[in-house]
Amino acid sequence: MTGAADGLLVSRDLSKRFGGLIAMDSLDMAVRPQEILGLIGPNGSGKTTFFNVVTGIYPTSGGVVEFDGKDITNFSPQAVYRAGIARTFQRSRLSLSLSVFDNVMVGNHMRLDQGLWFNLVARKDFKRQFEENFERARDLVKVFDPPLGNRMFEAVGTFPMIDRRRIEICRALISRPKLLLLDEPSAGMTHDETKALMDDILEIKGRLEDLTIIIIEHEMGVIERITDTCVVLNFGQKICEGPYREVAEDRLVQEAYLGIQ
């Protein structure tokens, strides 16, 4: 087991029960700084539950989450975000009726001045902050797709799925989190789109060296290509961890996926 000292995000004995259903069972996990960790497992194995518990959407039923040396167990979603964890959602939760810029800026909440006076009266200062942030948002979006940077003020609902995923990742990245949680970014996309999106993620990872990523993914090609290490869950328990090649060889993992007796 990885020692707690070298983990950016560490969970110890972390559990989540929904009534009688144990969605996550005493999970011990450590994510090393700057790595890309793949979280895999069959449907219902507790991957998204893990994200939801870490980000404070669900309260834990037991156990501890530490981030960057601090105990963040049962922090509110807001506090988790301020601590430096940002995420995307399985069913992309963008606001389709808002513009690209609006959506990205939601992710930048903690860096924006939220005072009423600043927003309503000090419009010159607001303009300055707006322009700075527009540049930042556009630069970030352009890393993913340059043409997208020219369409910052169009409604997200008019964009295809791959662009929505890109925008969602930008929303998570704009606040410069230390840890990015990607919940099935390839869901609903074609093979080629998935490949393009992974290129983007690797490109971003190349630019932001300090960034640590946990990615939930069903496409094993993606996992093989971009992860440094993998954790496999089944029925809420960790059944295996290690680099993808080792994990894929593991008998327990094969049983979990293929049902071999």
Partner: peptide
Amino acid sequence: RLERSWVGLNLDALRLDETAAACFGLN
């Protein structure tokens, strides 16, 4: 002015998706 500020953005964000808004620090 309210609509055209971060405050207006906050209000839209929480109306459209409270959970997502909370995950990005909105009180």
